[in-house]
Lab assay of single mutants.
Amino acid sequence: TTYYDVLGVKPNATQEELKKAYRKLALKYHPDKNPNEGEKFKQISQAYEVLSDAKKRELYDKGGE
């Protein structure tokens, strides 16, 4: 599973699309609303952290993490 899959976006997604997808999923899986989905929330946050940063995203796209 790639970070793009976690957020449900395509690899060519814009920053705005990433932000929108992250917010939607973060609300859905937030531990306050969904106590059993803490791990999913962490995955979503990690994916967004990497993909929202241009340098980290470039490194990730080249095969790094």
Rank of each mutant, 00 (worst) to 15 (best):
T1H: 13
T1C: 15
T1G: 13
T2H: 09
Y4M: 01
Y4F: 02
Y4R: 01
D5I: 05
D5C: 07
D5Q: 06
D5L: 05
D5F: 05
V6E: 04
V6G: 01
V6M: 08
L7E: 00
L7A: 00
L7P: 00
G8H: 06
K10Y: 08
P11N: 07
P11I: 08
N12Y: 09
N12S: 10
A13R: 00
T14S: 11
Q15K: 08
E16Q: 12
E16D: 12
E17P: 00
E17M: 07
L18R: 00
L18G: 00
L18W: 00
L18I: 15
K19L: 15
K20T: 10
K20R: 12
K20E: 15
K20F: 09
A21M: 04
A21R: 05
A21S: 05
Y22M: 05
R23N: 15
K24M: 12
K24W: 08
K24L: 13
L25F: 04
L25E: 03
A26D: 03
A26N: 05
A26E: 13
L27A: 14
L27Y: 12
L27R: 12
Y29V: 04
Y29F: 08
Y29M: 04
H30Q: 07
H30C: 09
P31F: 06
P31H: 06
K33I: 15
N34P: 06
N34S: 09
N34T: 05
N34L: 06
P35T: 08
N36D: 12
N36T: 13
N36G: 13
E37N: 14
E37Y: 15
G38E: 13
G38W: 15
G38C: 13
G38Q: 13
G38Y: 15
G38H: 14
E39S: 07
E39Q: 08
K40L: 12
F41D: 01
K42C: 12
Q43H: 07
S45I: 14
S45R: 14
Q46A: 09
Q46D: 13
Y48I: 04
Y48N: 02
Y48R: 01
E49G: 07
E49P: 01
V50I: 11
S52A: 09
S52F: 07
S52I: 11
D53R: 03
D53N: 07
A54M: 13
A54T: 10
K55M: 10
R57V: 02
R57A: 02
E58K: 07
Y60S: 03
Y60E: 03
D61W: 02
D61K: 02
D61I: 02
D61H: 03
D61E: 04
K62V: 07
G63W: 14
G63V: 11
G63Y: 15
G63T: 13
G64F: 15
G64Y: 15
G64A: 14
E65P: 11
